[in-house]
Every structure is written in C-alpha cells, then in structure tokens.
Amino acid sequence: MVESLLIGLSTSASCVAQCGNIILSIIMAEKKSVGQSYGLLSGFMLGRLLIYSGISAVISLIDSAATIPAGVTAVSLIAVSAIMLIYSIGKTKQLCLGHHFTRKIYSACHGRISLLAFAAGALSSLNICPPIISLIASSIGTKAVFANFAMFFIGTSVFFLPMPLIGAIKNTEAVTKTGRAAALIVSIIFLAKGIGILTSGQI
C-alpha cells in the first residue's frame, strides 16, 4: 500500500499533466468561487475514483494486466475530446460549425457542470498511462488491490488540490476565456491521440 502511495506521488506529475489540462480548463472557464471550484474538482475526482475502483475490481477478478484494450482507451479519449469540445463551444457565443448542436448538448447539461466534470474524470481515467501501468504491475498477484488503488488515487490527487485556487484571481474574464480556449485545445489533442491509437492499434 505504501508502495502504491509512493507510485501515485512520484508519477502524479504525469497525471496532472494529462488530466490536469481537462479539469483546469473547466475550473478556469467557470466563474466560480474557490469553494465552488473545489466542488467541480470533487466531481472530477469522483469520476476518477469510480473508474479506478472498476479497474481494481477487474484486476482482482481476472488477475491480469490486460485489463483495458487499446480500443477502449481510444474511444474514451475521443469521448473526453467530445465532452471538452461541447464544453468549449457550448460556452462560446460566436462560433462556426456545429454551433447549434453543441449549444443544445451544453444547454442540456446546464447547471450540472459537476456532472460534466465527473464524466470527464471518469473517461480520462480509462487510459493506460505510465502511472496506471506502474500501479497495475505492482498490484498483480497482491491481495490488497483495492487498497493499492485507493492509495494510488490519494497520491495522484495531491497535485490537483491547488487548482481551484485559480478561482481567487480577480480578472475573471481573462481566466474564463483562457479556460474555454484551453478546453478547445485539449479537445483537439485528445481527439488526435484517440484517432492515433485507433488507427495504429497501439497505445
């Protein structure tokens, strides 16, 4: 368990780099207080926790490393991309293609941004990234898979905690617009990654 915590702490830079983009852009784009931003982060973390619990359950059952096929990772990345795109475009007043469609989906989620953050957290966790591989490798054959994943989750979450503090910045318009733009860029990156995995069949 301690080893899993250390894996989480030592590899969390990678987690923040990958998933931090997603939640940071959402937090920045919402004109929320620090407290409300922590609410969004909680939704995101809950999504991650749910998926980690699922993965650990699968590992416990089949005791194998081959838990997430490349196709699932690719589809989940594309789904995250779609969520971020809808989020970014749905919040923007002037837009080009797909404006009405995305606005409608965004409107359907209106007032439930935490739900959006939750979905983004869950989908972004369905990803074979270096920290997860390290954790799976160290967890196989052990009896405390759930506990290992829980400790790993805590370890990787530490660096997410300061993110909502960005809500304390006074120039909210600048932060909001930057956040929406970041969501759009993240969407494009995840889409490219997903398509790359789908076409090559390799992660």
């Binding site: 830079a13 923040v16 780099a17 983009n21 956040g179 860029i185 990156i189």
Partner: peptide, 22 residues
C-alpha cells in the same frame, strides 16, 4: 478582430506546458 482571441495564447501556454511534461 475580437481582442478576446489574445487569451488563446495563454491557453496554449497552459496546455503546452502540461502536455510537454506528460
């Protein structure tokens, strides 16, 4: 040209810094 487009470069900074680290 909408002045708000300048904030896109800040988004680029954040995403590129994080993506490079990953």
């Amino acid at each position: 040209v909408n002045n708000s487009y300048k904030w896109f470069s800040f988004a680029m900074l954040i995403v590129m810094a994080l993506w490079s680290a990953e």
